[in-house]
């Protein structure tokens, strides 16, 4: 790793002013599980690393009647062990559990996964399904932006030098809901997704509503809005409908071939995992 200076600010204000002062030469660090590996490989070469771990405002997972606030320093372990996440955001719980392994999850943050903005980021499809918003502070004050506007492309996000994501906010689904995240990797632990599918089903005021989001099969995570529409209001989709929905889902994605899988395989798996994810959500809602 190239040499760098480490700053450990104790307040947001201090962190912002350091980041602003050094501009592109500085990078924030949460768990460091991506950042330190990228620095080792010299994919990024910051002169100043700003460790966010001592800033009290960024800690923890908080639940209120409006929804869930995941602080920038909340680890995947903290999120998946939160009772509110288990009760109200099961797709996010599944996603955190599919991430790496216990030891990495004890360091890696949910917000860091979003900020890395890699297409295979495991927590993102669930956050897309739950309509998460990203809360940011910076030299020009605070702002809030939907996750699908925040993520612009592989490793590209809508952020300027000096800005820090303070937390992500997930509104509470309006109605009884179920959810899941299905990840296809080459093995069970420590693997990036070849395809990741998050599904959420909500019994809201307009009847049953579904949300489907995909990771690792397009430059950014994507929602399959047409597929969602086709399912609207239907509590027990039959095989013909599931076929149609899985075809619509395949149209929503744009996979590439890489070392982990080819295009055809990824498309076939998008279709299959879509059906399984919907089934899982439908079953989980029946059980309750």
């Amino acid at each position: 790793m190239l040499a760098f200076e480490l700053e450990r600010p104790r307040s947001l204000q201090e962190a912002i002013s350091i980041l602003e002062k050094f501009g592109n030469r500085a990078m924030p660090k949460a768990g460091g599980t991506d950042l330190l590996m990228w620095m080792k490989d010299r994919l990024v070469t910051p002169e100043v690393v700003v460790d966010l771990s001592l800033i009290p405002d960024l800690a923890g997972v908080n639940f209120s009647k409006d929804g869930l606030r995941i602080g920038a320093m909340a680890t995947c372990t903290e999120v998946l062990e939160s009772a509110a996440v288990e009760d109200h955001f099961p797709a996010l719980r599944d996603a955190c559990l599919s991430h790496s392994d216990w030891l990495i999850r004890n360091r890696a943050t949910v917000v860091g996964n979003v900020c890395s903005a890699v297409p295979s980021g495991d927590v993102m499809p669930a956050l897309y399904c739950y309509d998460a918003t990203i809360r940011i502070v910076g030299p020009r004050g605070e702002r809030s932006i939907p996750i699908n506007k925040f993520i612009l492309g592989p490793r590209k996000k809508d952020m300027i030098a000096g800005e820090i994501v303070t937390h992500v906010f997930l509104p509470l689904p309006e109605g009884k809901s179920s959810g899941c995240y299905l990840k296809l990797g080459r093995r069970n632990a420590l693997d990036l997704a070849q395809v990741g599918v998050a599904c959420v089903a909500i019994d809201g005021k307009n009847g049953r509503e579904y949300r489907l989001a995909y990771g690792a099969v397009a430059p950014t995570p994507v929602r399959a809005l047409e597929a969602e529409k086709a399912l609207q209001g239907i509590k027990a989709p039959d095989d013909a409908l599931l076929e149609k929905v899985s075809a619509l889902a395949k149209e929503a994605v744009k996979p590439i071939a890489d070392v982990r899988a080819g295009v055809e395989y990824r498309l076939a798996m998008v279709g299959e995992l879509t059906k399984r994810a919907i089934d899982t959500c439908v079953e989980r809602l029946k059980e309750e």
Binding site: G32, T33, L36, D51, S100, D101, L103, I104, N106, R107
Partner: peptide
């Protein structure tokens, strides 16, 4: 961060020490 041979407990929590400064 892949192999776990560098595991330590940090305040009682297991982590991979190659991912910690």
């Amino acid at each position: 961060g892949e192999c776990g041979t560098c595991t330590v407990l940090l305040d009682g929590v297991p982590v991979k020490s190659c991912t910690v400064l």
